[in-house]
Design a protein around this nucleic acid. Structure first.
Length: 258
DNA sequence: CGGATTTGACCGCT
DNA sequence: AGCGGTCAAATCCG
């Protein structure tokens, strides 16, 4: 298994969970006001994230053949030609029907350009911690096809900030606990996929329904904001949008109360 | 007001 | 010369 395989599996499970929910929602569509879009989003994001993890493993299915040549287009790279290591930047691409919103990293856009071969613009992103942590990971995102839309995300370089981003010694963490920086997470994860940030009152309302394990998994205490690095990713694919479970109560058979 | 995004200019490569 | 990638000033936004 490659690094992150467990996360990929869990993302796929999350996608499966969303698919099942989607089925339930569609079956009750006449009587339900539940929005299916968040479920689609979660489903797509889960699969996209899992695929991206697989793609970044050693057996990268979409890995560009150009991965070990000098990276094209690195204009001001005179200082980058010093090592073969940097010429052999990790590079792989991933196609998805929607822009990959939650790939587990925080990105900062630094450019956008019209590409001759395409009618769509290409967006350039670098790791949000590029300066702070000397991370050289970048990605390019471009719509390569219309109807159905296909977005190609090309990752270049490796994150050196992914695992240690919250546990660097210079972080304001001196007591052994690890803190999620929600200011950064918010920008990487839209509200639509961050139901765990719903008000505590709402979470309590969810938990009060039942004491089943699944429900309890949706409940969180403020202390759960202090998580291990490996737990952090789990916050990227929350099951549902805020209020979704409330709406589900319309169903005679709530899939979460089995 | 500080951080993020936009966008035109610039640069190196082919 | 044309292209793609990056820079950086301007602008936006919370």
């Amino acid at each position: 298994m490659f690094h992150g395989a467990d996360k990929a599996v869990e993302a796929l499970l999350r996608g499966q969970e969303s698919a099942n929910l989607l089925k339930t929602v569609l079956e009750h569509r006449r009587t339900s006001s539940v929005s299916i879009e968040p479920l689609f989003d979660t489903l797509l994001d889960s699969f996209s994230f899992a695929i991206s993890l697989f793609a970044s493993s050693n057996t990268q299915p979409h890995r560009d053949s150009s991965q070990c040549k000098a990276t094209p287009g690195t204009a001001r790279k005179s200082s980058k030609n010093n090592s073969n290591e940097e010429e052999c930047l990790e590079q792989y691409s991933h196609d998805s029907p929607t822009p990959l919103q939650n790939d587990g990293f925080s990105w900062r856009k630094y450019g956008q350009k019209k590409i001759k071969a395409s009618s769509h613009q290409r967006c350039y992103y670098r790791c949000a911690y590029a300066k702070d942590r000397n991370c050289n990971a970048k990605k390019r995102e471009q719509q390569i096809q219309d109807s159905p839309s296909v977005y190609r995300t090309t990752y270049v370089g490796k994150h050196i900030c992914d695992v240690n981003v919250f546990s660097e010694p210079d972080d304001d963490i001196a007591n052994g606990s690890k803190m999620i920086r929600f200011d950064k997470m918010d920008q990487a994860m839209p509200d639509s996929v961050m139901p765990q940030l719903a008000p505590v009152e709402k979470q309590a309302a969810i938990a009060i329904e039942e004491d089943s394990d699944q429900i309890m998994n949706l409940e969180f205490d403020i202390n759960e904001f202090l998580v291990d690095d490996d737990q952090l990713w789990a916050y990227q694919f929350p099951p549902f949008s805020p209020g979704f479970l409330d709406d589900l109560s319309e169903f005679d058979h709530n899939p979460f109360l089995v």
